[in-house]
Design a protein around this nucleic acid. Sequence first.
DNA 1: CAACTTTGGGTTTTT
DNA 2: CCCAAAGTTG
Length: 789
Amino acid sequence: MSEHPLLRGLNPDQSRAVQQLEGPLLILAGAGSGKTRVLTRRIAYLLDARPDVAAWNVLAVTFTNKAAAEMKERLHQLIGESSKKLWLGTFHSICLRILRQDIEPLGFTRDFAIWDDDDQLRVLKEILKDRSIGANPKEHTPQNLRGAIDRAKNERRAPELLRLPPSDPTPKVYKAYEQRLRAANALDFNDIIGRVIELWEQSPEILVKWQRRFQYIMVDEYQDTNPAQFQWLRLLVGDGVDAYGNPRPQNLAVVGDDDQSIYSFRGADIRNILDFEKVFPDASVVKLEQNYRSTGTILKAASGVVRLNRDRKEKTLWTSEPGGEPLRLIQGTDEQDEAGKVVGEIRRQLRHYRPADFAIIFRTNSYSRPFEQALTAAQIPYALVGGRRFYERREVRDVMSYIKLVLNPADDMAFQRIVNVPTRGIGEKTLDGLKEEAARLGVPFREAAKQMGMGKGKIANAFAALDLLLQRLDIAARSMPPSALVLYVAKETGYQEELENENSEEARGRLENLEELARSAEDLSHQEPVEALRDFVDRASLSGQSDELPDAEGGSVTLLTAHLAKGLEFPVVFVAGLVKGLFPHSRAEGDREKEEERRLFYVALTRARERLSISWPARRRFPEGGWGDTEISQFVREIPADAFSEQDRLWLPRSPSSRPPPPPAWSAPSWLSRKTAEPAPARSSPPAWLAGRSSPPPSVPRLSTAPAVHTSAADVLEEEDDARGDLRTMVPDSPESFRVGMRVLHPLLGIGTISKKEGTLQNLKLVITFPKHGPRTIYAIAAKLEIVL
DNA sequence: CAACTTTGGGTTTTT
DNA sequence: CCCAAAGTTG
């Protein structure tokens, strides 16, 4: 049999997923089922089987930069140099590349800055200083407002369309925030996706350009995409017809596992994967259910838990190697004891394993401390992942801010960070004066500082010196590679000298971090300096915690949160802190949130290849001080008892030996969207043995006529489905419900009238005439349209 | 008015 | 238990 070499070693399902190249494809890939392998092979196979498709016609989206780097590496091995031509990265990195090229029609320059969460908060704080906005300091905290704005952006809603009570300051703040971004030529994190959508919506010719370019699109971790990302994909994939009315294939392959959807707090919508087949009715579906990672026992434990979720696609993971070591349950008297016992167990197993074979996984970052202490005491090397990110360290951010200011002199956030670092006698009052001057002149802070530096006096001298310094950096940036510039900035600003004089352990560490920052830019040295600098800053802006995961060769035990553990695997895993209130976390109250916690636990369990232990403390210290008895997590009880060793089973409180079969999965009543006019459908009551353990807060049915009491801006957004204000709208069940002549509400463009209807179902396009924007063609499926009653 | 010191508030998960 | 805003000193 002459099998294609790229199909070798694949199981039949994997092989099918690789060979199915045309049209929409949903690959439901269970934990450890070899999805990365399928994805890389699929790309290689595509390029081999279809000579007319060039590498640069292929787009692959991953969840983290690290995953992208690994995939690039594997592809390089498979197809060589041409792998460098294809675009492979996170949604954010890909959109950023697009914007650096094409953003100008939106009124930003290509050197726009990117503001991170911290910058967002600073701006919001400043906006809130304006009392006329009417914000209630308790309710409208910068954090709450940031959350509200982020959510609005993830769902692509303009400030006017939040439909809050007229007194609510959120839209005002949102608007002011948008103005600040624009004035500073800056984008926030969500804008990186959102502005591309905006660009494509307003400039069809630019959209078509990218559509022609990316003929084959693949998305990994599809279960963690948010509505904006979905809309982005929808635009790029198109509606099956090209500009000339010829058929155009929708070559979109998504890979995901609904059981591993754990980022809803960041706007991810599990409906994107659950409803894929509704959005693309002609989609092929491949399930990868054979697990190559874990023992049968580990799989049994993990599957037994996640089966209890209602909102999922049924699947059965299996392995050709049943059996394996039973799960161990480790009970500590308190966290220290728990950590001590876990580390004791690691020490015993070190006879058979290396330190890098172990992982300790917990729910919250703060839970790592006792384990760090115990590992230190036992002299076992460990690597803590998470904590402060490299690019978030103060010294790194300070130096980066100088560099950002060179690229974008209008970046007021960067300016504020460095204006008095190192201290140069410009304090709060002086800065206030500068801000006033900047507002008066209508110029960025840096320009205002330059103006003020022309005067006389102490303050003017300080500003003049700063201006001179920045000018020197401008010049240096044009001739030096980024790595040299980092060191130059540290030296010229006096930052380095200050740290050297301090002569403390901490200062030494900071100097080392700056050296590492310089080293991290060395790979960019062959580029033109300013281009390289841009890439350097972008990389810093988009790098996340998972990009700092230690390499497997490192000889240390890995400590990380369950979120960061996604996508990784270890021979021996300890999942720690399995206590009510911690895992599931006490803030996860509703059914949805509980299910997400359960998925998170499932992710943690399925990281283990050979041995898996669960640990919990019988007492624990609470952050507020004081000790309290704990209760073992419901999740531990949900693990089928026979997955545990005989002796550990005794520890588990009695639970019914037979478990009720999961109730049939319900499907959302609304087509596509989670945003339905109805409250969530009543579910059949949960299994009694589950309900008996912890009484969930009674879910209060929401009456659309009753005014809801709002305690925070976030709540208001959550409940925006309720009819409120003057506007009454409804979400149609099917796109067919739209009729010519109907008035509809578009989240971004406002109210318009349908003047034309083309295509059917998921390809339905509406021409809607908006009073402000004129006629626009809208994909009914991509925009969240509501009918105005 | 800037720089240092102390106190008080807030703690899920993060591309 | 860690970071940001008030209080204190030069």
